[in-house]
Design a protein around this nucleic acid. Structure first.
Lengths: 247, 247
DNA sequence: CCAAAAGTGTTTCTGATACACCCATGG
DNA sequence: CCATGGGTGTATCAGAAACACTTTTGG
């Protein structure tokens, strides 16, 4: 008898200060035996286990990819179209490693945020046992794609990314930015992050006034002597109001 | 093999102008043969069919209860605790009419709004074939419970109601109020609705100024000569900006 | 004529926006 | 010394909030 399956898919955002907002994708490499996976890209995700809660499932998937165990996670939507896995190209792929590839899958979308520098330090981490779907399939790579330049993805994953981005825009605040930025950051970096995500230019005096008034960030004694032209910017750190500690 | 089931549960709000915000509950009556269902209350909900989309499932359930086919619906959260149907009292009940009562059920919460007067005109409507869970179980009644006085409900339904209420508070606007109110309503009624739902007192001059400025409601020539003391209030109607029609 | 509820404008405050010049560094 | 990017304060505007009396009806 046919059953409905549940999965989670994670849209992991990373922000590269001098560049762009990016999303982590799983890219299947060309396989000479089947030629089927070439250029097959998707979001990290997996079916949930019978007794598994949704958020822990998302954590499990992300930890296995990044080695980071406490990634910021937020459920943002459900994708429940009965035909969302029925496209022939997706079916061809599913048949390779799912017991019942034609069965309906409802997926829960999670938005996740990570400091891309933390990620890089663990870039090679990978735990074979954790991600069923990925390891069953074998050979793949992680790539950071610019949000404005995302390739064609499997299933409805392009749509899921769009929805995650909408959600991030709507929810953006100082707590979230503090996750995307390294511990030490400059105000021009923070401002650029806001401008990149919301797509709006901000007046720098007003931006500083606002954010400093809130008291959520503190000045350090250091500046970024990057060897570039221009006055060096001073580093700030986020201050966690609840725990009275610097993040 | 154990599978995960998906259901939808509906939190249908109705607003009785002179009284309170209410939620529609399904109340199982006392059954002398089993004595099991006494005082068993729950939200209207059902497992979804294999090929069914979530929103249409919620519509189906609500239509079968109210006879109204186009009830306002909004998905607001997922409830996915693996043990949410495992409580002994709930298991006892599920064993009566589910093939696999011990299986995990993930439910999707829908908030729904209805003009309680429309509902009353169809109060006796009930379609046997539509709601599986309800008809399998047999005898039940619909009751409107005040949101501040909700009895103990099955599963995690008390929690689901709370979350729906939070969601309604957050999303409350003039479109939503127009659904809860009858076609003709007075400004004091509208203001009371806002105050009841948000739990905050509003200055009546500021409230009128604001809502009239938006142009979403229009004055009529009628007043509510209710035979009560005090100046009669004039009736207004919501004006649908998109369709240029009165709702 | 009194009690009850509807209806009506103005002032104050606060937060958002607009705007231009000086400073420190590298080349 | 010049090009580049960092850093600073004030004036204006708009929307939110505070506030008190008059009007119409029923009893």
């Amino acid at each position: 008898m046919s059953q409905i399956n549940i999965s989670v898919d994670c849209v992991l955002f990373g922000y590269d200060s001098d560049l762009d907002l990016k999303v982590l994708l799983i890219q299947r490499k060309y396989d000479p035996n089947t030629a089927a996976y070439k250029d097959h890209n998707s979001l990290p995700g997996d079916l949930i286990k019978y007794d598994e809660e949704l958020s822990p499932a998302a954590s499990r998937i992300l930890e296995s990819l990044t080695g980071i165990s406490d990634i910021y996670l937020k459920q943002f939507s459900i994708f429940s179209d009965p035909n969302r896995v029925k496209h022939p190209k997706d079916q061809k792929w599913l048949r390779k490693f799912r017991a019942a590839p034609e069965e309906r899958v409802i997926t829960v979308g999670y938005m996740a945020l990570v400091n891309i520098e933390d990620f890089n330090s663990d870039a090679t981490y990978f735990n074979d046992e954790i991600i069923g779907d990925l390891t069953r399939e074998g050979y793949f790579e992680k790539i950071w794609a610019k949000v404005n330049d995302i390739p064609e993805l499997a299933f409805d994953h392009n749509n899921i990314v769009e929805e995650a981005l909408k959600y991030l825009k709507k929810e953006l605040n100082h707590e979230l930015s503090s996750i995307l930025l390294p511990k030490n950051f400059t105000l021009p970096q923070l401002q650029k992050l806001y401008e990149d995500i919301t797509g709006k230019k901000i007046d720098k005096r007003n931006f500083r006034k606002q954010i400093l008034k809130e008291g959520s960030i503190v000045k350090t004694n250091h500046t970024n002597n990057t060897g570039k032209k221009g006055k060096p910017a001073t580093f700030y750190q986020f201050y966690d109001d609840k725990n009275k500690t610097i993040k």
